[in-house]
């Protein structure tokens, strides 16, 4: 079994209506249940918008703190799934279902499962 991150992207400059948001949540919840039933679900979570984000950076043995996310891009991380699958095809199939449910693009990334040397 391989683990994959399904990272949900979101253009924060175009927020959805309250109604659409509710429908998305309901559809996403269904996908979660489906994943659980199939034994693929590991973890999932939705995130607050990037205004609530803080970046902590290492610098010369100490750290600095800045307001906001890493990149000043329109696309922000809106939420994510961690799933376990046989192969990329299975992960991509879940990503399709997830993207249709939440109406947002999803980046599929395999975990680095190489054993620590």
């Amino acid at each position: 079994m391989k683990r994959y991150l399904l990272a949900v992207q979101f253009d924060e400059s175009h927020p959805e209506t309250e109604e659409e948001l509710r429908a998305q949540l309901a559809r996403t919840h269904k996908v979660n249940l489906e994943m659980e039933a199939a034994g693929s679900w590991v973890f999932a979570g939705g995130l607050m918008p990037s205004y609530a984000s803080t970046v902590v950076r290492p610098a010369n043995g100490t750290t600095t703190m800045t307001d906001g996310p890493f990149a000043e891009t329109k696309e922000q991380l809106a939420g994510f799934w961690v799933i376990q699958c046989e192969d990329a095809d299975q992960a991509l199939a879940w990503a399709r279902k997830g993207a249709l449910a939440c109406g947002r693009p999803i980046e599929v990334r395999p975990f680095n499962e190489l054993p620590a040397e």
């Binding site: 391989k2 046989e86 192969d87 990329a88 095809d89 992960a91 395999p110 680095n112």
Partner: peptide
Amino acid sequence: RDAGIPYRVP
């Protein structure tokens, strides 16, 4: 290899 793209017939 790393993404686990299978050697499988669709």
